[in-house]
Design a protein around this nucleic acid. Sequence first.
DNA 1: TAGGATTTGTGCGTATGTATT
DNA 2: TAATACATACGCACAAATCCT
Lengths: 230, 230
Amino acid sequence: MDETLTDPRDEPLPESLSARDRFDKIHDDMRSRICLLEYPPGMKLSETELATEFGISRTPLRRVLARLEDEGLVTSVHGVGTMVTTMDMAELAQVYRLRKELVLLQTSLDTVPPSPALIARVEQLLGRAEALKSAPSAKEFSMLDRDMFLTLLDLTANAPLRLMSERLYFRTARIWLQQVTASQIDLMQEIEIYAGEVQDILDALKLGDLDAIGHIRRGHISLSFARMQK
Amino acid sequence: MDETLTDPRDEPLPESLSARDRFDKIHDDMRSRICLLEYPPGMKLSETELATEFGISRTPLRRVLARLEDEGLVTSVHGVGTMVTTMDMAELAQVYRLRKELVLLQTSLDTVPPSPALIARVEQLLGRAEALKSAPSAKEFSMLDRDMFLTLLDLTANAPLRLMSERLYFRTARIWLQQVTASQIDLMQEIEIYAGEVQDILDALKLGDLDAIGHIRRGHISLSFARMQK
DNA sequence: TAGGATTTGTGCGTATGTATT
DNA sequence: TAATACATACGCACAAATCCT
């Protein structure tokens, strides 16, 4: 499969973007690289190299790094460097426990009824999950999970809840991928389970049963973490 | 009462702080000014003036402003300026609904048993609440509420929950103070109610009943918002 | 212990965008 | 419409901190 088709990162850069748009684009880009383990935990990032690559100076790039640090994805030390953060099990467990609670809120606080468009998107995601069964790929799986998460986030209109949930998600997404890549988790089994979860969620969506979705997801998050711990 | 005793903001600046410490100090300072309405919503902030006041250049100050913008307290527009944000009722309602859920988590997720030191701190806070009855002050009340919030946050060890709760709190604290200052809320009545809440929480703390604390707080947040809406 | 190499943090001049006259 | 004023955004050179030899 052609990588440029699945990874929209290498799009030709639009000519003139506003400063804000540039910031968002570079930030999302860097975040993706970290979450997809292109920049694995512990890796040292060079401000000057990144600035050169993005065609900007260090100043705006440092703003991106500052935000990534605020989000817990990198850490900068004066005179030493900027490193991608690692997470120990205790820290990971804290995030997972909180995420388990937040998914319930995502389908109970300021909810919006699922639109046909949203259901169609989930049906497409289910297709991607089924396709993964015959062509397993940890990275593709990771991207699917991310898209699924962002899609279901549209079930709530509560802006601060959306923001916090998103941050927590991107904080831990890479750790799971890391475990899979290290073959500590059986990828094929994860894909099977995941496809089942998407199917269950799709069924609940069509019935408009948001509460069920919350608890389905909560259960899967809990189980996923349990499998990871073993 | 001597203002310098209650407001630690005007401390003599320690000679040499690390870059990180300077950042934190200036950030907390700016956040206090915004939350205590020294910088009211809509006010335009000058980068150069602030940089001069803090004795630094615009570069590190801009990093502080960037974080405050990320926290939703200010907004910067290229060519226009940096303004303190305002909040409409719909947005405020969203934050309050989420905060109502999070206070429950603060006393149910990764909880730590209340230490004697924490109980002592709350007893001191109760003293401040009682003192406010004879000398009402909206600003003092606001600072008391902030200290109470931060104290009770120690009941959970879940770091991401602590961080998110803190951000949400500082996002809305100033709005309540604004309503009081505009005399749309009866300050004396609020103080009476608040002192009662602190007393209830203190009793529950001594019994080690964290669950009760969560629901007491949730109820008060709900009622407080209801009084604000009228 | 000392000194150089490397990296992040800071200061400042300039470019760019916006509003007003 | 154009020009002027003023604000944020940017680029670059230098300072400060850390690490290694």
